[in-house]
Every structure is written in C-alpha cells, then in structure tokens.
C-alpha cells in the first residue's frame, strides 16, 4: 500500500510524558462508561433512548412543579418524587447496565482492559460507580428542576433555603436508590454478553416481583403486610425512604419494621457488589 512512504516520513515519536497509575485508569473507565451510558461519543441511535428518558423524567418533574404551584402545598415532596420515579428509572437501569457490562463481554474487550494496569476488581468497581452515577443523574435532573421551580415560585430568600433543606433528603434518597438499583442490575448484566437477555433479566427481577409484593401487602394483615415490601426492590427502597425521611405518600407500608428495610437495602448493596467482584474475578479473558 502507498501509505508506507508517508508513514516513514512522519517518524515514530517515543512517549516521554507522565504515565498515571491504576486509580487514573479506573477513573478513565468510569468516565468513559458514564459517557457511553448516555450515548456520548457514540452514534445518534445510542443517544436516543437515554436522552429521551432523561427528558421525559425532567418534563414530568416540570409538570409536577406547575401543578403544585396552583395548590397551597406541593403535591409531591422531593423524596416522594424519587419514590414515584423509581419504577421508570429501573427501566433505565435495565437498559444501561447491559450497555456498560454486556457490551464489553460481547465484544471481548476484557482482555484489552485486563492486559492494562487496572485489575479485574478495579474494572468492576469503575463500572459499578458509573452505573450508580448514571442512575443518580436520572434522579438528580428532575429533582433539580423541581427545586428551581419551587425556588422561583417561592416568595422570599428564606423560602429558597427552606427548599434547599428539603432537597437534601431527596438527593440522599436518590443516591440510596441508585446504589441499590445498580447493585442489582449490574451483576445480572455481567452474566451475559447478550444485551437483550440482560435487559430482560433485570426487568424480570424488578417488575415480576412487584405484583407479588403488592398483592401480599394488600391482602395480608398485620406484620406480613408490613414485610411484603421487602420482596420487591422498588418497594423495599420506598420503605427505606419511609423509614429514613418519613414520606407521607405511604407507597410501602412498613409499620415498625423500618430498620429491617434499611438493613435489607444495605445487604442487597453489599451482596450485589460482592457478586459483581466475584463474577469479574472468574470471567474468562
């Protein structure tokens, strides 16, 4: 081929600059993953779904703000918004987690990563962090829109600080939801290189358990009804909201079992992370 001469002319330059360590490698995987979760640096087709979902969530939030401004009291608190949006956002996780984990498996990219400085666990943690962040962005966008809307419609600067105080539990709740949702979705996605299967698996876990949990909650009496929320991740998370922030929506009945919901969420997050690590230690490269 004719480029041989051209290549010769350019000449090869050795790289004398800094080489950053493992942490930076992890950070690079993390940034790349968050970007690709929203389709940045990829085709327009890859951007379509995540951007549409984000826009939809923000629009929904905007409508809630507008409606709320017609009433003396807001129709939904910040934590309530997180609880309400959770089902929609698990769908986002079901699409994004395979994007982050299954795609690399499918394209046999792991040998390229593992032949570089990051360890297998570094890779897994970077991907986990990226999924948490991506899911959190889906909560944070609508929360911020709600905050800005509320702040503008409020009368005094004191009210703005009041709103800010209310926003914080909302963000905290969004973070808890993000961690637990990611801890369930990512290990499932890492099982298969087929994105469709991974998405189906995640949706199955999140959605199929919902009617069981809901039915038990409605038809049981006493303690059984209060514990039924544990059977579905989203109900479980809403129970945690209930326990920590005392939301008034009562989506999940928890009774006096709030701490059990807290421990269950924590266990899920730890177990999910452990399974993810174990999976990537074993995965063939």
């Amino acid at each position: 081929m004719s480029e041989a001469g051209v290549i010769h002319d350019i000449g090869y330059q050795r790289y004398e600059g800094p080489r950053l360590g493992r942490r930076y490698s992890m950070w690079s995987i993390y940034v790349h993953s968050v970007r690709s979760a929203f389709g940045i640096g990829r085709t327009a087709k890859a951007k379509l779904l995540p951007v549409a979902m984000f826009t939809l969530a923000c629009l929904a939030s905007l409508i809630i703000v507008v409606v709320s401004s017609q009433f003396p009291e807001p129709i939904l608190s910040y934590v309530g918004l997180v609880s309400t949006f959770s089902y929609g956002i698990t769908a986002f996780a079901a699409i994004t987690a395979p994007e982050l984990a299954s795609r690399d498996l499918r394209n046999s990219l792991l040998p390229l990563y593992f032949s570089r400085p990051p360890h297998r666990t570094d890779y897994a943690l970077a991907k986990f962090g990226a999924l948490i962040s991506s899911v959190f962005i889906m909560y944070a966008g609508p929360l911020l829109i709600m905050f800005i809307g509320m702040a503008f419609s409020s009368g005094s600067i004191g009210d703005v600080f009041g709103e800010l105080g209310d926003l914080m539990p909302g963000l905290a709740s969004g973070l808890i939801h993000s961690v637990v949702v990611a801890a369930i979705a990512l290990p499932l996605a890492s099982l298969t290189g087929r994105r469709v299967f991974a998405t189906g698996l995640i949706i199955a876990v999140f959605l199929l358990s919902a009617p069981i949990s809901g039915a038990l909650q409605s038809f049981s009496r006493g303690d059984a009804a209060y514990l039924a929320g544990l059977l579905n991740p989203v109900n479980l998370l809403n129970g945690v909201d209930e326990w920590l922030f005392g939301t008034v929506n009562e989506i999940t009945l928890i009774g006096r079992f709030g701490p059990i919901y807290g421990v269950a969420a924590l266990l899920l997050a730890v177990l999910g992370t452990a399974l993810l690590m174990w999976r990537y230690k074993k995965v063939k490269s």
Binding site: G17, L20, S25, A46, S108, Y113
Partner: peptide, 25 residues
C-alpha cells in the same frame, strides 16, 4: 489479542484514545 476485540459502535479515534487513557496517558 488473536480474536476480535473491538466495539463496533465507536470510532477508532475514540476507542484508541480511551485505551490510551486506561493505560495511564
């Protein structure tokens, strides 16, 4: 590696840049 190991839906420039960063550049 011997086998295919490239993602189809990114550009070569983007992919090789990313791999350079993972190597610590």
């Amino acid at each position: 590696p011997e086998h295919d190991c490239l993602p189809p839906d990114v550009s070569a420039a983007e992919f090789v840049t990313h791999m350079g960063r993972v190597s610590g550049l």
